[in-house]
Computed example of a mutant assay.
Amino acid sequence: MMVLKFYLCISFEDLSIVVSKTPMYKQFCHIPLDQDAPTDTAMMKITKKYGLEIIQQLKLNDNFIRELRKQKIIKGRKLRVDTTVIESNIAYPTDAELLFKGVQKLETTMTTIKEKCGQNVRKYAKKNERNEAKTS
């Protein structure tokens, strides 16, 4: 659970709730699906008992990555991070824009699936067909 705590960057209280409600995290932590995760106070006591230094000395992240490499789940290439900060105006997406982009993505995916299944697919949108009909 400490790997998840460091990975998700959350508090003990949030960690307990997230692990209890997420079957994938329960399986990762070897907690039976019919049981709840340890409480936040229990995890704090364990951390206090063994000390945060001991947990950090275990290098959980390094051991975890080494094991993933060994099992060939990841390639373990180097990661570069650029921390340059540039001030700029950010245009945050609206709900309507996100919905529109989602609909577009679904439409292109469905078109691709229909083409692969051998169905006839319209090559132009209805809007373009109406404009062509008006100009003719």
Rank of each mutant, 00 (worst) to 15 (best):
D14F: 02
M2A: 11
R122P: 02
F6R: 12
K105D: 03
V81T: 14
Y25D: 05
G118V: 01
A37R: 00
Q119H: 11
R77D: 14
G76F: 01
Q104V: 02
G51M: 08
Y124L: 08
S136A: 12
I46R: 11
P93R: 01
Y7T: 15
L106R: 10
K127Q: 03
V81E: 09
I74V: 12
A133D: 11
D62N: 13
C9T: 07
H30E: 14
K114E: 06
D34E: 14
E129L: 15
Q119T: 01
F64E: 11
L99K: 15
N120Q: 07
S11D: 10
L8H: 14
V121W: 00
I113T: 11
I90D: 04
R130F: 07
C29G: 03
L99W: 07
N89K: 08
E107V: 12
S11Q: 09
I46T: 11
N120L: 05
L33R: 06
T22K: 03
Y25S: 07
K72C: 10
R69F: 01
K21S: 14
K70H: 12
V19C: 06
T112W: 00
M2E: 12
K116I: 02
A91L: 11
G118K: 02
A125V: 09
T111K: 15
I74W: 00
L15M: 13
L33A: 07
K114T: 02
R69D: 05
A42G: 10
T41N: 14
V19Y: 00
A91V: 14
K59G: 12
I10N: 08
K5H: 04
M110S: 12
Q27G: 04
A42H: 11
L99D: 14
K114I: 01
L98Y: 03
E53M: 08
M24Y: 10
Y92Q: 11
